Amino acid sequence: MEQDLVVNEVFGPTVQGEGRSMGRRCAFLRLGGCNLSCTWCDTPYTWDWTGVSDSGVAHDPRQELHRRPVADVLAELLAFGTDLIVISGGEPLGQQERLIPLVRALVEHGKEIEIETNGTHAAHPDLVAAGVRFNVSPKLSHSGDPEHRRIVPDALENLAALPGSTFKFVCRDTRDLDEVSGLVSAFELSSVWIMPIGRTADDVTRHLSALADAVVERGWNLTTRLHTLVWDDKRAV
């Protein structure tokens, strides 16, 4: 029996702001809940009910989270008329069994699907079979979470073995790149992307400038945060 999804927001049309599909027109499904608590999280309203993130705001789950039937979410996403659907969070793979009916229906309508995940959950085989692409963003030590929570070897090995997976690391400056290098080597990660930390356009640009040369030198890919450059810290864009 299908279960409702716990949704934070659905919005579009917009563009994918990060990684290999940056700039592509898309619609977003943002799910609620996360198993991590990154201090710098740019979507604390999906999980931070006590004000532990840098925002210091205790968000109200009664306002932010909504139980919605799959059929309703499907209809809203299809109405945007985009070829690409991005499923984000929070941590969407915390609800991945509930996502399977939605993903199957979207694929039947010819949609491409990317799921943004923190890499602590192995992907459900049914999502893999549906052709979902996984944008995996393992968290570094500056996130504030202990390593045993943010680095789950079995999950990373599962995701690294999937065709089309990319690995995106949020970095502040070149000192973070050594930590990334350790994870890339330990888990034999390919398609590595480095993204600057920042909730505002000025912050993103400053950190991007500090990282760019070293990222290129290491042979990795560089991504900005396009949605932040365009709309700053505005939600649902």
Rank of each mutant, 00 (worst) to 15 (best):
G90R: 06
E91L: 06
P92V: 05
P92C: 09
L93K: 07
G94F: 01
Q96A: 02
Q96G: 07
Q96M: 14
Q96H: 13
E97P: 09
R98E: 14
R98I: 01
L99H: 07
I100F: 12
P101G: 09
L102V: 12
L102M: 08
L102G: 13
V103Y: 12
V103L: 06
A105D: 13
A105H: 10
A105F: 00
L106Q: 11
L106H: 09
V107D: 05
V107Q: 05
E108Q: 15
H109Q: 15
G110E: 02
I113H: 02
I113E: 00
E114I: 13
I115F: 10
E116P: 06
E116M: 02
T117P: 01
N118D: 15
G119W: 10
G119E: 03
T120G: 01
T120V: 08
T120I: 05
T120Q: 05
H121L: 14
H121T: 13
H121K: 15
A122Y: 08
A122K: 02
H124I: 02
H124K: 03
H124A: 15
P125F: 07
P125I: 10
P125Y: 09
D126V: 06
L127V: 03
V128E: 01
V128S: 04
V128R: 03
A129S: 14
A130F: 08
V132R: 06
V132W: 07
R133H: 13
R133G: 01
N135G: 10
N135S: 11
V136A: 01
V136E: 03
S137N: 06
S137M: 11
P138T: 04
P138F: 10
L140S: 13
L140T: 13
H142W: 15
G144T: 02
G144W: 03
D145G: 07
P146Q: 08
P146K: 09
P146N: 04
P146R: 11
P146I: 08
P146D: 11
P146A: 11
E147L: 14
E147I: 14
H148P: 01
H148T: 04
H148V: 02
H148G: 10
H148F: 12
R149G: 00
R150Y: 10
I151G: 01
I151E: 08
I151H: 00
I151L: 10
P153K: 05
A155N: 11
L156V: 14
L156D: 12
L156Q: 04
E157T: 14
E157G: 04
N158R: 07
L159W: 10
L159C: 04
A160Y: 08
A160G: 05
A160N: 07
A161C: 11
L162S: 06
L162E: 02
P163I: 02
P163W: 05
G164R: 01
S165V: 02
S165H: 05
S165R: 06
T166S: 15
T166M: 12
T166Q: 05
F167H: 08
F167W: 11
F167C: 10
F167S: 12
K168N: 00
K168D: 02
K168S: 06
F169T: 09
R172G: 14
R172E: 15
D173N: 15
D173F: 03
R175G: 15
R175C: 08
R175I: 01
D176G: 08
L177D: 03
D178V: 09
E179G: 12
E179V: 10
V180A: 03
V180R: 05
